[in-house]
């Protein structure tokens, strides 16, 4: 018999099969099942399924706790995006100059190491740093004659503490991407500006920033989409507390589906998450297209 790998079409399907079947079973079907679950009422013990229409969605949308989670997540995103992308850009601009290789190596190591390690593990470390009575941060605040801060137990401060951890963890990623964009600017553009007598700030504002704006926009979108899914750090640092002050969308979804054991409601929340991601992507695409058109 001829080997099927001699025919182009047969080979194509054979090459495609393992990856595509995995994708189908582990990603596509589960995603569609989430949609189906969100429209049904599932009895977890008998697996009796009844159609519930928009009931689950309406329940979520009328649940005050959902709106708390929604608001928290967007507060987190606003602060985390500004911190990560803004600080990342600042660092990229500062590092984008001639430096000895050893210094550059050290800087990249220090800023990128947090990106590499598990959020869950560094959250454990930060939990100790944030401890009110025995934490290092408060120790140094007291040394400076400042009062202790209830980093994780004060509902006004807790989200800020989570954002600080998030920016520490991810700023290196946004620094590296924006640094690569800055280094991709043609030298002739910058030199032309220098010949015209433009200062550092003017060169940045009128030459470099417009050039890298698409990358900055990408960073904002990426940080927003990952921010929508924030879970690990909050779960470990505050468990959503104090009260519900730091509960996030994914946490709400998790607690409805596995805590309250209401699969339909959890799935409806998961779909709102997908919708938020889709809208973010769409907005980025529209803005990106307008930028290219200009």
């Amino acid at each position: 018999m001829r080997s099927p790998f001699m025919s182009e079409r047969a080979s194509a399907y054979l090459f495609l099969a393992p990856g595509f079947i995995l994708y189908l079973l582990m990603a596509l079907v589960p995603a569609l099942a989430t949609l189906a679950f969100s429209l049904t009422e599932v009895d977890r013990f008998t697996w009796g399924i009844s159609f519930a229409g928009a009931d689950n969605l309406l329940f979520v949308l009328s649940d005050r706790r959902f709106w708390t989670a929604f608001g928290n997540t967007f507060t987190f995103i606003a602060m985390a995006v500004a911190g990560n992308v803004g600080l990342g850009l600042l660092l990229a601009v500062l590092i984008d100059r001639q430096m000895p290789r050893a210094v550059l190596y050290f800087l990249r190591l220090a800023f990128f190491l947090p990106v590499l390690v598990a959020t869950a593990l560094v959250s454990l470390v930060w939990q100790l740093l944030y401890s009110t009575d025995l934490g290092i941060l408060n120790y140094y605040l007291n040394e400076l004659h400042l009062p202790s801060v209830s980093w994780l137990t004060n509902s006004r401060v807790a989200m800020v503490s989570i954002v600080i951890l998030d920016v520490w963890k991810h700023v290196g990623f946004f620094m590296i991407i924006q640094l690569a964009a800055l280094q991709g600017i043609p030298r002739s553009l910058v030199e032309a500006g220098e010949l015209d007598g433009a200062g550092f700030w003017q060169i940045f504002r009128y030459i470099k920033l417009p050039y890298i704006l698409p990358v900055v926009l990408f960073c904002v979108t990426y940080a927003t989409i990952t921010g929508l899914q924030v879970f690990d750090s909050i779960r470990i640092l505050t468990q959503g507390g104090p009260g519900d002050a730091t509960i996030s969308l994914v946490m709400y979804m998790y607690e409805e589906a596995f805590g309250a054991q209401d699969i339909g409601v959890g799935s409806a929340a998961a779909f709102i998450l997908l919708a938020a991601i889709a809208v973010t992507t769409l907005v980025q695409w529209r803005i990106g297209r307008r930028m290219v058109a200009q």
């Binding site: 582990m26 990603a27 079907v29 589960p30 995603a31 099942a33 989430t34 679950f37 989409i225 929508l228 899914q229 879970f231 994914v250 979804m253 998790y254 589906a257 699969i263 959890g266 799935s267 998961a270 779909f271 998450l273 997908l274 991601i277 889709a278 992507t281």
Partner: peptide, 11 residues
């Protein structure tokens, strides 16, 4: 575009 959290419940 599918976030990992979305597939967790059916999985």
């Amino acid at each position: 575009m599918v976030p990992p959290a979305l597939t967790l419940i059916p999985l």
